[in-house]
Design a protein around this nucleic acid. Structure first.
Lengths: 293, 293
DNA sequence: CATCTGATG
DNA sequence: CATCAGATG
């Protein structure tokens, strides 16, 4: 008998440890400051290639968390190449946008409740061709999920990022003028020294340049809140991304690049923001937002 | 604990079935027509990427066969990228040639006895830049191993192949004028209808065009012998290559593309030519030649 | 349906 | 050290 290679990969690639997510207790009694228990759960995950993530049982996050909304970034997959199990998930409406360049960027949104409307992009042709933003309108808020441009090795695309930041901010402010917003995704910036393991060594690297950090500070100054840092202002070593290189995840040499950012007026309804480091499937881990709506 | 992905691939990718080679009995009492038992064993294997083949435990062929000489084709690996376990194998001298284009073509030769001399190529710059031929001189014969140019999808490189065939033939005849030769490798041709599962459908496909078949007929007419077909003139369904597509190997929809070709005057010393279909690690299987020298 | 490279992160 | 695409087989 020959080696059944494909089957082996599919069935055995994930050792028991990684199936933790399925049995681990993700329940929470988190509540607002005035004691109202959460009733809305969002999950955000940069999957670093949806097709590879599927093979690593990424979809188990749906069972583990039973979320109301899931946002994925870096799907690297156009809709017609998307495996059917990701295209339609039982009990969820799904929305996708991908880059014109195949296998690059791309985000997805799954929602139990059908949004009032869904729009794609930020109204800028160049950026929108890269499939980075989905905006979904709900009765009480706008949800924006984004995969923000990476400034690149040697900062080769820092210019693109600097072009992006104000345009994206305008998109958020325009929405915020109508309804409060929840922004989630890979914002490709570690805001402050506390948000990455090696701040000193990364001052001129993508994700921690002064330019990118200022861009985020600037956004927050316009009336938005980094929900995790709001709840846990001094909590150290809380990361959502670890490069695959050099066994960084095991050593927790990581970056906090994934966020839930809220309009200030939603903060009273914030219950918790959790970082699910026990879930594998990508070089990022998922993050979870609990809100009382 | 995280999934130990690399380890999983390395340790578990090969199910028990594929380890057969280690336990299977490859011993043989084959002898020449006049009853002299074999005392020289050669193995030839198109590995379709040496690095991938290593991970699939390809090297176990050394334990399984305990060969005097091993020739590999399509190593797709320059010497400096070669994993150390393949660069030097205990008890063998090793010789490599690779294409100038990284990750393309390339052959390797391992020999227990050190050859009197080793040369590379056929003396034609264009072809030799593709790393297709190693020639090793032994006291009693020349050994030539080759990965012959594929005529390509839609026969886009049939011209290259037609340029190759006479030049390669000349190389062989020049050697044969000095000492008998053993040629082995992926000759990228199924000689006759018996040598592939679907002759009708492949008359204008790479490996079974009249041009390529004539090239091989031509070579044999110059005093060389296809050792397998010489021993087993009517044996059907004996293939050495199956495309990965469509589960062809399980269905034995294959091609005999790998050969040991001998100078006619070596035929009296021929003991056997075996096709090791039980060994996996590539889209080709290894072939084994037993000679009395 | 595999192997590679090279771009990207 | 991963993902993907695209060339090649």
């Amino acid at each position: 008998m020959p080696p059944k290679r494909k089957q082996v990969l599919d069935a055995k690639e994930q050792p028991e440890e990684s199936k933790k997510g399925k049995t681990e207790d993700f329940s929470s009694d988190a509540a607002t400051k005035d004691g109202k228990k959460w009733n809305l759960k969002l999950v955000s995950w940069n999957v670093d290639g949806l097709r590879a993530w599927l093979k690593k049982d990424g979809l188990s996050v749906f069972e583990a968390e039973s979320p109301d909304i899931v946002c994925l970034q870096e799907t690297k997959c156009s809709e017609n190449k998307m495996p059917p199990e990701a295209k339609k998930i039982d009990g969820y409406h799904s929305y996708f946008i991908s880059a014109k360049t195949e296998g690059y960027s791309g985000v997805a949104l799954y929602s139990r409740k059908e949004p009032l409307s869904v729009t794609y992009g930020i109204g800028d042709k160049t950026h929108d061709d890269e499939g980075r933003v989905i905006t979904a309108e709900y009765p009480e808020f706008y949800l924006v999920t984004s995969y923000v441009p990476n400034a690149g090795r040697k900062l080769v695309t820092l210019d693109k990022r600097m072009d992006w930041d104000p345009k994206f901010q305008k998109h958020l402010k325009d929405l915020d003028a109508k309804k409060p917003i929840i922004l989630c995704g890979d914002l490709n910036v570690a805001h402050n020294e506390i948000d990455l393991a090696n701040p000193k060594g990364n001052k001129r690297n993508a994700g921690f340049t002064q330019e990118e950090r200022d861009g985020f500070t600037d956004l927050l100054s316009e009336g938005f809140v980094d929900s995790f840092r709001h709840l846990y202002p001094k909590k150290e070593k809380q990361y959502t991304f670890w490069t695959y290189m050099g066994n960084c995840r095991a050593k927790n040499v990581g970056w906090r690049l994934d966020y839930f950012v809220l309009s200030e007026r939603l903060v009273p309804q914030l219950c918790d923001n959790l970082i699910r480091t026990s879930l594998y499937g990508s070089d990022h881990c998922p993050i979870t937002l609990l809100m009382h709506m």
